[in-house]
Design a protein around this nucleic acid. Structure first.
Length: 195
DNA sequence: CAATAGATCATCT
DNA sequence: GATGATCTATTGC
């Protein structure tokens, strides 16, 4: 749904992503992930992210250097990096840093905003609203994001990210990343206080 | 509530 | 051939 009056804020421009990964991860909190599927719109507010750096970060996929899988991370910023984890779930990342430099932000949790009925249909058996998209694998299922989105431009197209309504005023908590073995004590996980 | 096991496959060694 | 940036159901207190 378009609006000239601004019930929806503007799409984050490519320059937003062309900065340090950590900064991008922090400022993505509160922004809206919006996926248009035909005439339906699914949207969620980003409430948790993790930064994955480049060659210096052993926990990052990009640590291995450029491969078929990781070339997107080394590509231009503002694109989606979607990969399969544990043979079953897909995880959405947004590529940061200028082209040729590695860095991406894992979207770890969303607060459902639009298209709740559709999300519930995609997540059968889930009772509580807060569990619809409260994890990397859950949110891709709820939002209908798959590896088809790998390499897609998120400043333009069916999948975009829109600026936070309260940009800059979000109370951010920082902790260590989860689910990894290497560099597990680096403070690169960000979430909105109260989640 | 907390801990644990099992599902399942692309990617890299 | 091993290994994961996970989720869910089940078990045990």
């Amino acid at each position: 749904m378009r609006s000239s009056a601004g019930s929806w804020s503007s799409v984050l421009p490519r320059e937003f992503y062309a900065r340090h990964t950590e900064q991008v991860a922090r400022e993505l909190l509160g922004a809206y992930l919006v996926h248009r599927i035909g005439n339906r719109v699914l949207a969620g507010k980003i409430v948790e992210t993790e930064a994955y750096l480049g060659l210096a970060d052993r926990a990052a996929h990009a640590w291995h250097g450029v491969t078929d899988r990781t070339q997107v991370i080394f590509g231009p910023p503002g694109h989606a990096y979607v990969y399969l984890i544990y043979g079953m779930y897909e995880c959405l990342n947004l590529v940061a840093e200028p082209a040729d430099q590695a860095g991406c932000v894992l979207i770890r949790a969303l607060e459902p905003v639009l298209g709740l009925a559709e999300m519930r249909r995609r997540r059968p058996g889930v009772k509580r609203l807060e569990n619809l998209a409260s994890g990397p694998g859950k949110l891709t299922l709820a939002m209908g994001i798959t590896r088809r989105h790998n390499g897609q431009d998120v400043t333009r197209g069916p999948l975009v990210v829109r600026r936070a309504a309260d940009a800059g005023a979000v109370p951010v908590e920082v902790t260590t990343r989860v689910g990894i073995r290497h560099c597990a004590d680096w403070p690169l996980r960000f979430y909105i206080r109260g989640n």
